[in-house]
Every structure is written in C-alpha cells, then in structure tokens.
Design a protein around this nucleic acid. Structure first.
Lengths: 239, 239
DNA sequence: CGCACCTTTGAATGAGATCAAAGATGGTGG
DNA sequence: CCACCATCTTTGATCTCATTCAAAGGTGCG
C-alpha cells in the first residue's frame, strides 16, 4: 500500500516495489483506544497503516493534549524514531486498526539500496510537514469555527483520495473531545461549532456520519489552502 | 556549515564532506525585510543560512500571518520545493542575511551518491517536524504566558547550540508583532506577557537583548519539552 | 532634527472556557 | 432480547483570558 502512495509521483521499478513490499510483512492489530507508541518511551519501530484510524498526539505536563495528525490507510507512522531515541509523541488507535510493523534499520536499507525511495520518503515527510504548518496557522490565527471547518476539509479531502467517501458522506469515528484536542478547542465549543455549521447548511450530521454539503463554502470559511500537486522532477534516477 | 550540522550524528567521510560543501557555492545576501521565497510562487531552489535570521510563515486570506519557524546559521530552508511546485510558505529575512543557494536537483544527486546523507537529511527533517509539533501543542493547549515562554526557551536553546549566547544574554532581533505571529497572539498581549516575565524575574530585557535569568523556571512555565539526543544507529553505511 | 516604527499602557469588548446538568447512544452482560 | 451503565452529545449560565481600540512614550535611522 506504501507502493501506491509512493507510486503517485513516479513509476516505481519492480525492484523498488518488491523492496517496499518487504516492509509490509509483520502485521499486527490493535483495539480502538490502545496506544501503539507512547511518548517518552524508547521506540525503534515504524508502522504502515493498513486499516483503521490512528492519531499521534503530544501530552503536556498540565494534562492538555494536542492531536497532531490523524493517520489513515497507507500512512507511515512513527518516523520520529529516526531522529529520537525516545518517542516524542503518543500514537493511539482511534478505531480498531491493522498495521504493518518494521524496524527502522529497514529504512536505512531502503536509503542505501534505493536512493529514489529515500528521496520519495523525504518528499512525503515534507508534505506532512506542510500539512502540519497549515494546521498551525489554522490554530494560531483563525476562529473556532474556521478551525473546525479546516479539520473537516482536511479529513474530507484525504479520505476522498483514499476512496473512502460515499456520496458526500464520510464516517468520522471521532468524539468531539478528540476534535477539540486536534483543533485546540474544548469539546463543548466544538459541539457548538458543529451545530452552527450544520444549521448554516455547510454540513449534515447523522451519528458519526458527516456529509459535506457545500465544500466550496466550507473551504472558504476554513481558509483552507488546497496545496498544488507534487512534482518529482528532482528525484534521482531509479537504481 | 551543513557539514557541522549533519556531522553531529555521525563522522562524515571526506567524500561526503566534499559533496556537502559543493552546495555552499552560490552565495547571496538579502536585506532585512526582503522576501527570499514567496507563498504561491514557483520555487525550485533551497537555501542554507550562513548568517542572520530568517523566518518562514504562512499568510491567511484574512490577512493573519503565522510564523512557522525561525531559521539560523546552518539551517536548511525551502525544502518544501521538494514536494510542491509552488511554495506553500513565505521566507523572509528578519535581519540582513547571507545564504547559500542551490537547486533542488543537487538534493537528488546527494540521495543518489551519498545515501547516508539522504538519510541524515531525512533525520533533520524529522527533528524540525517535532519542533513544529511542540509549537503546535504550545499554541493549541497553553496560555499566552506559556507560549511566549516556550518561544523564548526554543530560541535560547537553539542559539546556545550555535554558540550565540553571551553570558546568558541573547540578541532577539524580533518585534513584538513577530513574536505574536509566531505564538498566535497579538503584539499588545505579547508586550504584557514579556513585561510580566521580566517582573517575575524570569528574564531581563534591554532593548533587543534578552537575558534568561531562570531557565529552569522558564522551561517549566512553558511546559517546554527538552527533546532527547538524536541517534544514528539506523543509518546506512557511508559510501 | 524629524519621521517612521516600535513599545507601553489603559479601558472596553468579545470569543471561547468553565461549570453544571439533562438527553442520547451504544456496547455488554445477564 | 433487554436492561443497564459508561460514554458521548447537547444546552444553558457565567466567567476569564486575550483581543480590540486608542493614545501616549521611546528609539533609531536618514
């Protein structure tokens, strides 16, 4: 599945594809709510999401929690172990999940044997960094309503890329508290904002199902930046 | 200077060092206030800071600006062009600066010829990502006072690593508006927080000079996470 | 010296937090 | 299959931190 993700930018050679598939051997499942990685504990394994949702978060001394990113199918999780001995973040299963697990030395092998894959991994990491900076701008500089809208836009567009949207509706397995932790708001205020968005006809809710009724307006309110396509001209030749 | 930065984790081979130094040929200077990269415009060049401060920021439709990160000597700037045709962020000179400039194809070459350097670049990118997530948690989940403290802690520790601290004092060439744009606050409120920190004996100010009087307490108030040392065990062999 | 920009301070306002409690939902075990 | 309990959502009232607006000092540069 990482094959598809990286293959977005370039056509991978059979050899590259085979090496990537090697990463996806060891498969594990976790129950919703379980912690796959824990802030402050040693970590040297990475994960590729096969199925389900996870999120990574940082917990502050005061008890506050900031959710950094939600992870879906084909996302690479736990990359922090490539720069830190102890995990700087906690990774939690939002739903029941299945992941592929492998040790960070495999990443070193990839860089060595398939420089272009290394470069692609770098490009993906840059993409996620930009996604983080967009969130930062959203939380730092926009209203509660815009922040909730922005999160919905982000999730909606990412799920659409994965083909997880059925006629405008997406399954959001998140509590309002989790949405609050992702947007820097309280659960109570998230509730009010969601209700307001629904009343204004931007979205419709039905249990955990959310339909985006007016994506254009939602993106506008969110000040959501739709990032241009990636571009692999700079990549080294495949080996 | 990138040599020193990457050489932190491992001992670079002479060959690796030479290749890195090739990046630092083309040198350019910019006046304080000038924009080196501009959000939305095509970009395919990267920069290494030689001297001076820059920051990268995102500007929102409403006019709000979020400063994402300050860049010092030996920082690599503009990596976003490795994943996006158009720059997702603006890079501005905070002071007069000198940078080395090179095209993104050079990065491709590095990945190809020196896999370990590719991996090191990846590790650095992970480090900066974590720094961003710490900022995100700070802005999303802590008080104004803590946010300002956290920014001061971050800058203080980074400058110390670069040897830019003279007996507890650092030169902060930032306006309070810039500090506000970095912390998600208004300039007015930044002013009040700085004053409060000074009154409480955590810092002392004198023009643009800031001395940290009680680093322990400042870090505690900031809920500042001092990240553990990096670790290069997973890196591929040098070529 | 004078102008532009920055810092400082005060007062009024407002967005979002907090506190509290009443519905809704869904998973589990009897 | 149903009842119960935990968890989540919804709503109202109040409070607080940060913003906004305004104007008076500072600072440094041309």
């Amino acid at each position: 599945m990482l094959v598809q993700r990286l293959g977005h930018l370039v056509r991978l050679t059979p050899d590259e594809q085979a090496s990537l598939r090697l990463l996806e051997g060891q498969r594990r499942s976790y129950r919703r709510g379980s912690q796959i990685l824990c802030q402050g504990e040693p970590a040297s394994e990475l994960f590729i999401v096969r199925d389900g949702w996870l999120h990574s978060s940082v917990v502050l001394g005061s008890g506050g929690r900031q959710i950094l990113r939600f992870h879906f199918r084909s996302d690479l999780v736990g990359g922090a172990c490539l720069a830190f001995r102890e995990s700087p973040e906690t990774v939690t299963a939002v739903t029941d999940v299945t992941v592929s697990q492998f040790s960070r030395e495999r990443i070193g092998d990839l860089f060595e044997n398939h420089p272009r894959i290394g470069a692609l991994l770098f490009a993906i990491s840059v993409e996620e960094r930009v996604s983080l900076t967009d969130r930062l701008a959203s939380i730092g500089r926009t209203s509660a309503r815009a922040r909730v809208s922005a999160l919905l836009c982000e999730l909606y567009q990412r799920m659409r890329l994965l083909g997880l949207i059925a006629d405008g509706g997406m399954q959001l397995p998140l509590t309002q508290e989790e949405i609050g932790d992702a947007t820097g708001l309280t659960a109570v205020h998230v509730n009010r904002m969601m209700r307001a968005l629904a009343e204004d006809g931007l979205i419709a809710r039905n249990g955990s199902q959310v339909r985006v009724l007016d994506e254009t307006r939602l993106c506008a309110e969110a000040q959501f930046a739709d990032r241009s396509e990636a571009d692999g001209d700079w990549l080294p030749r495949p080996r």
